[in-house]
Amino acid sequence: MSIEEQYRTRAKELLSGGAVKMVIGYGKGTTANRRRPLFISSPDEVERLVLDDVCITNLSGYLVSEGLLSDEKRVAVFLRPEGIRAINILAAESQLDADQIVIFGFDVNGNEVQALKGIHVEEFADVIGSIKEAAPEAAEEELFEKIEKMSPQERFSFWQEEFAKCIKCYACRQACPMCYCRRCIVDSNQPQWVNTSSHTLGNFEWNIVRAFHLSGRCVECGNCDRACPVNIPLRLINHRMAEEVLGAFDHFSGMSKTQEPVLASFKKDDSETFIL
C-alpha cells in the first residue's frame, strides 16, 4: 500500500471514530504539479487527499486559525519535518496544545515520499535531531555563498534591489506559521509604528522587522519564499539568521515543545552583561 493510501485509511479511521474532527492535508491543484491545502471533516471525503512529492506547503499555520483548536478537539495534519518543528515552536510559545495535534509525518527524498513514524510531536525527536546534525553540512545554494562573499556595500545594494520589488502584500507573513500575531506590528496604527508605504524605506523596515521576528524561530520551510509574488529570495535571509542563532546560542529551532524561545529567555551564566 502506498503512503498516500495508508494515510487515507488512517484519516478515515480517525474521522469515523471521532478521534479527530478534521484532517488538514493536500488535494489536487489547478495544474498537475500544484497541490492545494485541503480540509476534510467527513470520512467519506478522504479519497480527495493526495500525498506525493509536490506536497510542499507547510500546513502547520492553519492550526492556529482563530477558534480551530478552542473546542479542545484533535486535528490531524500532514507535515514534513519542518512542519513538525513548527508545531514544537507553536507549543513552546503557548499557541497550541501539542496533544491536540495528530501528525501524519512525511518527507520527500527526490521523487520519493517517505512516511515518518509517529503520531505525537515528541515521537519525531530523532528525525529533528538528525536534521540539526545535517544542517551545517547541508549544501548551501550558490546565491547564498555569493552574497556571503560580498562586501557590506555590495550586499546592501543587492538587498536594496530585491526589497525595491516588495509590494507589501504580506504574503510572506500570511504564509508563515510563525507569524500568528492577531495584529501585526505593521498593522498597528495607534500609533503607526511602521510606515505603510511600499517605498524603499518602508520595504526595508518591513523586511528587517520580519527577519528579526523570525530569528531563532524560523524552521526554513520556505513558505514565505514560495509565496512571494515578486520573487524576493527570503529563504536566504532566514537561513542567514538561523545560522547566526545556531552559532551564537547553539539553538536549533523547534527541537522540542518545551524548548525555550532563544530571544525571549535569559540564562544567568550568559557571557554578555547586556541583553537587547
Partner: peptide, 20 residues
C-alpha cells in the same frame, strides 16, 4: 478555508484599485 489572507492576488490584479 485555505485563503491565507495575503494581498498578492489584489496587488497583482490589473483592475483592483483600492487605496488608503
Amino acid at each position: 478555508m485555505r485563503c491565507i489572507g495575503c494581498a498578492s492576488c489584489t496587488y497583482l490584479c490589473p483592475t483592483c484599485h483600492c487605496f488608503d
